[in-house]
């Protein structure tokens, strides 16, 4: 375990996500922290790196201001390259974390674990729901092999549970695939109206020939001046390069102390897309 290099102050103020920690995975699952040096969740991250599964922290292990935390491994075939841990703030406006995995003999995913806060009814609905390959957010993430962001959930045709599941309070969602040698799971984060998940979320798709990133879906906080929507404009983001090159999660803090991460989706050894989150 690495020591903290800077004061572990709350760095993400106006978003549902209160902390992100990024780890590079070395030989023998030795984790090397790439973020601020805060390593509150290194045990969770290690477990995720070893199991190749997204894992939700047990409630007892969390500090009093954190509602829930999830560790998502990034895999390159049979090797785990890095782990990102995302912790949700304890707030009146609840967030949701879900883990969907293939179940049964048909090509469909079911809910295997999750955090739902006070949204017990949404949880109850979700626990009975199955999404076939390509259906609903978890099924689309599976089919596309990349992260998908959905905005305006109550009216989003692709978010099948929206209309029914206490639609009024749900705002946007991001689905993140966990893919090893084959599809393992879809991780879904959902925020309710008051707090955005991040001030900017953008899912990029890699164009095979030109190594250019194209925006596939995005959601921005309306109050965020730093993040301007870029509609399907191909741009190069130099800081995200090591996500492409080294197949691992990138963490950076810019001159304004603004934290961003880039999570690559890797299919058969190639990065097919990047999920960029700014806080």
């Amino acid at each position: 375990m690495l020591s903290s290099t800077e004061g572990a102050e709350m760095m993400l103020a106006d978003t549902l996500v209160t902390t992100v920690e990024v780890y590079r995975v070395g030989e023998g699952y030795l984790l090397n922290c790439l973020s601020d040096g805060r390593t509150n969740y290194s045990e969770l991250a290690t477990a995720a790196a070893q199991s190749h599964l997204p894992l939700i922290a047990s409630p007892q292990s969390l500090s009093s201001d954190v509602a829930a935390a999830i560790a998502v491994p990034v895999l390159m075939g049979s090797r785990c390259t890095s782990v990102v841990v995302i912790a949700l703030r304890k707030a009146e406006a609840d967030g949701v974390i879900e883990i969907w995995k293939p179940v049964g003999r048909y090509a469909e995913v079911g809910l295997v674990d999750g955090y739902f806060g006070s949204l017990a009814r949404f949880q109850n609905v979700s626990s009975f729901v199955r999404f076939e390959y390509g259906m609903g957010l978890p099924g689309q993430v599976w089919k596309s092999g990349g992260a998908i962001i959905q905005d305006d959930l109550p009216n989003h045709p692709g978010f099948l549970r929206a209309a029914g599941a206490s639609a009024g309070s749900l705002a946007s969602a991001v689905g993140i695939p966990v893919i090893g040698e084959e599809f393992i799971s879809s991780v879904v984060l959902i925020n309710s109206r008051e707090l955005p998940i991040a001030s900017m979320m953008r899912s990029w798709v890699v164009d095979d020939d030109s190594r250019i990133l194209v925006v596939a879906s995005q959601a921005c906080s309306p109050t965020d001046e730093h993040a301007k929507p870029l509609d399907h404009i191909a741009v190069e983001k130099s800081w995200m390069r090591s996500a492409l090159k080294d197949h691992e999660v990138v963490w950076r803090k810019d001159e304004n102390d603004r934290v961003s991460i880039a999570i690559p989706s890797i299919v058969e050894g190639c990065v097919t897309g990047i999920l960029e989150l700014s806080f």
């Binding site: 003999r105 599809f183 890699v206 399907h232 097919t272």
Partner: peptide, 20 residues
């Protein structure tokens, strides 16, 4: 410059085929 998106991966190929 925007070019075509990457071809979709076929994740079902590796699983035991579900009954049609």
């Amino acid at each position: 410059m925007t070019t075509e998106l990457a071809p979709e991966p076929n994740f079902l190929a590796k699983r035991p085929a579900p009954p049609p």
